[in-house]
Structures are given as C-alpha cells and as structure tokens.
Deep mutational scan, measured.
Amino acid sequence: KELVLVLYDYQEKSPRELTVKKGDILTLLNSTNKDWWKIEVNGRQGFVPAAYLKKL
C-alpha cells in the first residue's frame, strides 16, 4: 500500500471527494490523474486534489 501525507485541509465539494485534515496519513488508491488522487479515509473512497497530498 502506498501512503500519502495531507499537506493542507481540504473540504469536500462533491460526493466524489473526501474531506481531509493537514497531517493525516492516508492510503493512496490511484494517482494516475495528475490533478486528482483517489484515497481512502475511514473506509470511504474518494478524490482529493493532488496538490494537497505528498507521497510517503
């Protein structure tokens, strides 16, 4: 499993997105899109802007 660090808080703006908090370490599911990465948070899957995340 690949992990990502959340660099900035992000509030979901659609049902396909997820809310994340700065400092969270989460599972990366897909990073093929350069702008939006798919991650998992508490069993939910969704997208967060790639600029808000850093691969560990």
Rank of each mutant, 00 (worst) to 15 (best):
K1T: 12
K1S: 15
K1W: 11
K1R: 11
E2A: 13
E2L: 14
E2G: 11
E2P: 12
E2T: 14
L3C: 06
L3K: 08
L3Q: 14
V4A: 08
V4M: 02
V4S: 01
L5C: 07
L5Q: 07
L5R: 07
L5G: 02
V6T: 03
V6L: 01
V6H: 00
V6W: 01
V6D: 00
V6G: 01
L7V: 07
Y8C: 07
Y8Q: 13
Y8R: 12
D9G: 06
D9T: 06
D9Y: 04
Y10T: 01
Y10E: 00
Y10A: 01
Q11N: 11
Q11G: 08
Q11P: 04
E12Q: 13
E12C: 07
K13M: 12
S14N: 14
S14T: 11
P15R: 03
P15L: 10
P15W: 09
R16L: 13
R16W: 14
R16F: 12
R16C: 09
R16G: 14
E17F: 05
L18A: 13
L18G: 03
T19F: 06
T19P: 03
T19H: 07
T19R: 06
V20H: 02
V20C: 05
V20W: 01
V20F: 03
V20R: 00
V20G: 00
K21Y: 11
K21I: 09
K21V: 08
K22C: 05
K22F: 05
K22H: 08
G23T: 01
D24W: 10
D24L: 09
D24Y: 06
D24I: 04
I25A: 02
I25P: 00
I25F: 05
I25T: 07
I25Y: 04
L26I: 12
T27K: 09
T27V: 14
T27D: 07
L28S: 02
L28H: 01
L28G: 01
L28M: 04
L28Q: 01
L29E: 03
L29T: 06
N30M: 09
N30I: 09
S31N: 09
S31T: 08
S31Y: 09
S31V: 08
S31W: 09
S31M: 10
T32H: 13
T32K: 13
N33M: 09
N33I: 06
N33H: 15
K34P: 13
K34Q: 12
K34N: 13
D35V: 14
D35W: 13
D35Y: 15
W36P: 01
W36E: 06
W37A: 02
W37Y: 06
W37M: 02
W37D: 00
W37R: 00
K38P: 01
K38R: 14
I39S: 03
I39P: 00
I39Y: 00
I39R: 00
I39N: 02
E40V: 09
E40H: 04
E40P: 00
E40Q: 10
V41A: 15
N42E: 13
N42Y: 11
G43A: 07
G43K: 08
G43P: 02
R44V: 14
R44A: 12
R44H: 15
R44F: 13
R44N: 10
Q45Y: 10
Q45T: 14
Q45S: 11
Q45D: 11
Q45M: 10
G46Y: 04
G46L: 05
G46H: 05
G46S: 03
F47A: 03
F47W: 15
F47N: 05
V48Y: 01
V48M: 05
V48C: 05
V48D: 01
V48P: 00
P49S: 02
P49I: 02
A50G: 05
A50H: 04
A50N: 04
A50E: 03
A50M: 04
A51I: 15
Y52R: 04
Y52H: 12
L53K: 00
K54A: 11
K54C: 08
K55D: 04
K55A: 08
K55G: 04
K55M: 14
L56N: 03
L56F: 11
L56S: 03
